[in-house]
């Protein structure tokens, strides 16, 4: 089947190829190039793009998407999918908001919200591992369940009047030098670093790649695939909760319609960032760039005066173009 002639591919040539790819930073390069080109273009054509205010506004605007995308990335690396992240963000934010209106202190409300989201992730994981449901179906169901609970628990009305101390989580800018860095952006960066290290340096991280690359090989190597999948879905719920709570704090209101359709933005950010839907390929750095690219496209189209109603079409086209370019660039570097 996989008949290959060993001599046809001298090891030294393959090694040179690997060294070259290592040098140019492998996967993130294509998407990084697009991102930088787009940012350069916007800096030259508009006066408002490259200002500290705008940069931090954009960073804050995609921070919770990026945070949820880190969790989604873990799931997709194992060749799974979690469609419930958007609903879960809304549900976790609502959980924290309800606790606050019942008089809970901020730390307890945040803890409660995190618990809700993590629990949703755990149930997803159990459905996929214990009950052997396809991830697409299990999380599609969970997407609807979580959204339904947000409507049911609120009667469709947004929860308002959240305490200022809670809202500061999303609205406060921490002074760093001469800049004010929004708290959600700091949380995003800290989580990005931790998740990157987890994936690159720990055995669990490596096993996530292994399961996505060849599940059977991972199993016969003594890796507990089920435990690992349970871990990634639970972690995905945890990240969605973190994103959802920050989003709620920023908006100062927990609406049952919040984060509607975010799952697609999140999955798009992950895939644009170079994570393969077939599993085993991709990094957190890529996801971060993917989420940033999505946001700069949105902001950029606004700044350029692109008609608002046409923006979704433009964004969709850019997603397709970005991934095609990325594929092309990767294919070239592999042949090189």
């Amino acid at each position: 089947m996989h008949e290959r002639i060993a001599a046809a591919k001298p090891a030294s040539r393959a090694a040179n190829g690997a060294g070259w790819r290592r040098l140019i930073g492998i996967q993130e390069l294509g998407i990084l190039a697009i991102f930088l080109l787009w940012c350069t273009f916007l800096s030259l054509t508009t006066t408002t793009f490259l200002t500290p205010t705008n940069v931090f506004n954009m960073l804050r605007a995609f921070s919770w998407i990026a945070i949820a995308a880190f969790g989604e990335c873990l799931v997709i690396l194992t060749a799974g999918i979690d469609l419930s992240v958007g609903s879960n963000m809304a549900l976790s934010g609502l959980g924290a908001a309800l606790l606050l209106t019942w008089g809970a202190p901020v730390w307890l409300a945040v803890l409660g919200g995190m618990l809700v989201g993590t629990l949703v992730g755990l149930v997803n994981g159990l459905l996929v591992t214990r009950f052997q449901l396809p991830a697409f179906i299990a999380t599609l169901g969970m997407m609807s369940i979580a959204r339904g609970i947000t409507y049911g628990a609120t009667g469709g009305w947004p929860v308002r009047g959240l305490p200022k101390e809670f809202n500061r989580l999303g609205q406060y800018d921490l002074p760093v030098g001469e800049w004010g860095v929004p708290v959600p952006v700091l949380v995003m960066l800290v989580l990005a670093v931790f998740t990157s290290i987890f994936l690159g340096r720990t055995t669990n991280g490596r096993h996530i790649y292994a399961v996505g690359g060849n599940e059977e090989a991972a199993r016969v190597s003594g890796i507990n695939n089920r435990r690992l999948k349970l871990l990634v879905y639970t972690a995905c719920g945890f990240f969605a909760a973190a994103g959802g709570i920050l989003m709620t704090a920023r908006l100062g209101v927990a609406a049952p319609t919040a984060a509607d359709g975010y799952e697609l933005d999140i999955i798009a950010a992950v895939v644009i960032g170079g994570v393969s839907l077939f599993g085993g390929e991709g990094t957190i750095l890529g996801v971060l760039i993917g989420a940033a690219l999505m946001q700069t496209i949105r902001t950029g189209l606004n700044l350029l005066g692109f008609p608002t109603y046409w923006q979704p079409a433009a964004i969709g086209a850019v997603i397709i173009f970005a991934i095609m370019f990325d594929r092309w660039q990767k294919g070239r570097s592999i042949q090189a």
């Binding site: 987890f198 720990t202 055995t203 669990n204 490596r206 096993h207 790649y209 292994a210 996505g212 690359g213 060849n214 059977e216 090989a217 991972a218 016969v220 190597s221 003594g222 890796i223 085993g280 390929e281």
Partner: peptide
């Protein structure tokens, strides 16, 4: 039974990685 997406060293040690330190189940 190899993972094509991992390098040679990772495959040789897959499931039996050499661990520098551990913290709970983090290795």
């Amino acid at each position: 039974a190899l993972c094509n997406n991992l390098d040679v060293a990772a495959n040789v040690f897959l499931g039996r990685e050499v661990v520098r330190w551990r913290l709970g189940s983090l290795r």
